[in-house]
């Protein structure tokens, strides 16, 4: 503690200048750390699913799931999100071609798919609120809005993240740091897809079959 690192002549190192093994270990640490973070997010969603499972029959005079869910739009949402997961995969593959244009195209398609998903979801929410079925009505609707909304919030964060990724690629090209950023983004996006599959099943499918 007696020594103070500010006193030394230091020269700065950028990530791209790092020695190979140090760069590799940062890459590994970040990917692993991010994966662990995703697992905490998984527990977060698990808690919300548990809450939904407890409350989904507590309609308190308000509507039940089968009265308000529209499976057609949910199917469209699901297809949009699944396709976007596929195009994220294409984005990662196109990184290997080292052609910015390919990456931009795939990333842009992913972005559009995610955005349309979000628009449909918000539309569903605003429709429900407009016909008086808001989160204030019952425990069921509170947990429905919170669970699906939390997923939607994650999607929004993913959309912003994509814009930043495109900016990073534009500025600094195909460095290891950027490859790492794209990799952990794809982890995140696939993860949201998995969560959606569960929402699709537990909330919507089981909801309309009155389970």
């Amino acid at each position: 503690m007696s020594t103070q690192n500010q006193q030394f002549d230091i020269h700065h190192v950028s990530l791209s200048e790092l020695r190979k093994e140090e760069s590799t270990s940062i890459f590994e640490n970040v990917s692993f750390g991010f994966f662990v973070y995703l697992m905490t997010d998984l527990v977060l969603f698990a808690s919300l699913f548990a809450v939904y499972a407890v409350l989904h029959k507590n309609t308190a005079g308000g509507p039940a799931g089968y009265q308000i869910f529209n499976l057609n739009t949910v199917l469209v949402e699901t297809l949009l999100l699944l396709t976007s997961s596929f195009t994220t995969g294409l984005t990662i593959l196109s990184l290997k071609t080292k052609t910015k244009k390919n990456v931009y195209i795939n990333l842009f398609i992913t972005f559009l798919l995610g955005l349309s998903f979000l628009v449909i979801e918000l539309n569903e929410f605003s429709h429900l609120v407009s016909i008086g079925d808001s989160w204030r009505v019952s425990g069921f609707l509170s947990s429905f809005f919170t669970l699906v909304g939390t997923h939607g919030l994650h999607i929004s964060i993913g959309l912003i993240w994509m814009i930043i990724l495109a900016y990073r690629l534009h500025k600094t090209g195909f460095g290891r740091a950027n490859i790492r950023r794209f990799t952990i983004f794809s982890l995140f996006w696939h993860f949201l897809d998995v969560i959606w599959i569960f929402i699709f099943t537990v909330v919507y499918l089981m909801g309309v079959t009155r389970l």
């Binding site: 919300l48 409350l55 308190a60 989160w135 204030r136 425990g139 509170s142 809005f145 919170t146």
Partner: peptide, 24 residues
């Protein structure tokens, strides 16, 4: 999650843990 839900109850008028309206 738990703290957030309690806050949503208190601020947004949700019913996760309220005594009525389907809270538990």
């Amino acid at each position: 999650v738990t703290l957030t839900l309690l806050y949503l109850d208190r601020t947004m008028g949700m019913h996760f843990f309220t005594a009525g309206a389907g809270g538990n």
